[in-house]
C-alpha cells in the first residue's frame, strides 16, 4: 500500500515561457513537467519520484482555446478539458473531441486536467488523445532556440513515450479547420461511468454524398499507444457506405490491433467488440450530419 503522500522534490515555477524552456535546457531529463497534475501527482503518490517538478501555473497566456474557420482550432498548453467544453465551436466543428471531453473523468478533474497533458501522457487509453488522433493535428514544441511542429501521426512512439525531447515544452495543439462534408464521432466503453476507458474509438469522415472520400479511425486500449486503423480506413476510402461494407470493416479491425489482458478487460473481449464499436461510431458520425 502506498501512503499516498508526495515524495520530496524541488518545485520550479517559471514566470514566463522563456524561463521555462531555459530551465528545461539546463535540467532536461531531471524535470517532470506538470500542467494540471492529474497524472503527474497521482504517479508521484504511488511510484514516481522526480528530482524537479516544473509547474506551468505561473506562465501567463497558455490557457486559450481559439477557433478560426480558416486556421482551425488552437489549444494552449494550460487549457483544461473544461475550457474546451466552454467553446461552442468545438461542439459544432469537432464533435468527436467535444464528446471525449464531455465524458472525461469528473467535473473536478475536468477543471484541472489539460488537453495537452492527455496527449503528453501518451497513454493508450487517453480519451482526448483518441479523438484528436482521428481528427489529426500538430503539436508545437518550444525550446530555447526555436520551435518545431510534430504531426500527431508521428507523436506517440511507445507506451508513455512521445517525440518531445527533454528540453522541449509543448505549448500548443493545432487542429485543422473542418473540411467540407467532415463529420466525426467518439465512443468508449468503461467498467463504470467514471473509470478509464477499456476501449475507445474515434472516427473522422469526409463525405461527398454517400461516398466517403477521407477516413481516419483511431482506437485506444488496443496497443501500447493510441492506434490508427489504417487498413480498415483504406477499405472505406472512396466507397459508398453500405451495410455490407460496414460488415467488412467490423471483420477487419481485430487483425489490426494487439490488445492485452489487464484489470479493465481481456484481449479476447476487446478483439470481439472492437469492430462493432468502430461501426457504431461511423453510424453515429453519419447520422449526426
Amino acid at each position: 500500500m502506498s501512503s499516498r503522500i508526495l515524495p520530496d522534490f524541488d518545485l520550479l515555477l517559471p514566470k514566463s515561457l522563456a524561463e521555462a524552456v531555459e530551465l528545461l535546457a539546463t535540467h532536461g531529463q531531471r524535470i517532470t513537467v506538470m500542467a494540471g497534475g492529474t497524472d503527474v501527482l497521482v504517479a508521484m503518490k504511488f511510484t514516481q519520484s522526480p528530482e524537479y517538478v516544473m509547474s506551468l501555473d505561473g506562465i501567463p497566456g497558455l490557457g486559450y482555446v481559439v477557433f478560426d474557420a480558416a486556421k482551425g482550432l488552437r489549444i494552449g498548453a494550460k487549457a483544461t478539458i473544461a475550457d474546451l467544453l466552454a467553446q461552442p465551436e468545438v461542439k459544432q466543428h469537432y464533435p468527436a473531441l467535444w464528446h471525449a471531453a464531455e465524458i472525461f473523468a469528473t467535473g473536478q478533474v475536468r477543471n484541472t486536467a489539460t488537453v495537452l497533458g492527455n496527449l503528453l501522457r501518451a497513454s493508450p487509453a487517453g480519451d482526448c488523445s483518441c479523438a484528436i488522433y482521428a481528427i489529426g493535428g500538430k503539436l508545437i514544441l518550444q525550446r530555447t532556440d526555436g520551435r518545431r511542429e510534430v504531426d500527431i501521426d508521428d507523436f506517440w512512439l511507445s507506451y508513455g513515450v512521445t517525440a518531445r525531447e527533454p528540453d522541449e515544452l509543448a505549448i500548443e495543439l493545432v487542429l485543422p479547420p473542418p473540411a467540407i462534408g467532415a463529420r466525426s464521432a467518439f465512443k468508449r466503453m468503461t467498467r463504470t461511468n467514471d473509470d478509464l476507458s477499456k476501449l475507445n474509438v474515434a472516427v473522422q469522415l469526409e463525405m461527398l454524398g454517400n461516398t466517403c472520400v477521407e477516413a481516419r479511425f483511431a482506437m485506444g486500449c488496443v496497443a501500447p499507444t493510441p492506434l490508427r486503423l489504417r487498413n480498415t480506413e483504406a477499405l472505406l476510402k472512396g466507397r459508398e457506405i453500405t451495410a455490407e461494407l460496414l460488415a467488412r470493416l467490423v471483420e477487419s479491425v481485430p487483425s489490426e490491433i494487439s490488445p492485452i489482458d489487464d484489470k479493465r478487460s481481456t484481449a479476447e473481449y476487446r478483439r470481439q467488440v472492437s469492430g462493432v464499436l468502430l461501426k457504431r461510431a461511423i453510424e453515429e458520425a453519419c447520422s449526426a450530419a
Binding site: 499516498r4 518545485l11 515555477l13 497534475g37 492529474t38 501527482l41 497521482v42 503518490k45 509547474s55 501555473d57 505561473g58 473544461a82 473523468a105 469528473t106 467535473g107 473536478q108 478533474v109 477543471n111 484541472t112 467514471d194
Partner: peptide, 27 residues
C-alpha cells in the same frame, strides 16, 4: 482517496470546483 476519485476534498479555487488532494499548495 488522495487520487481525484471521491470528491471528499472538493474546494472552490477562484470559483472552480477542484480536488484539493491533486493540487500543490505552493502553486
Amino acid at each position: 482517496c488522495g487520487t481525484g476519485e471521491c470528491g471528499a476534498c472538493t474546494v472552490l479555487v477562484d470559483d472552480r470546483a477542484i480536488n484539493s488532494c491533486l493540487a500543490l499548495a505552493a502553486t
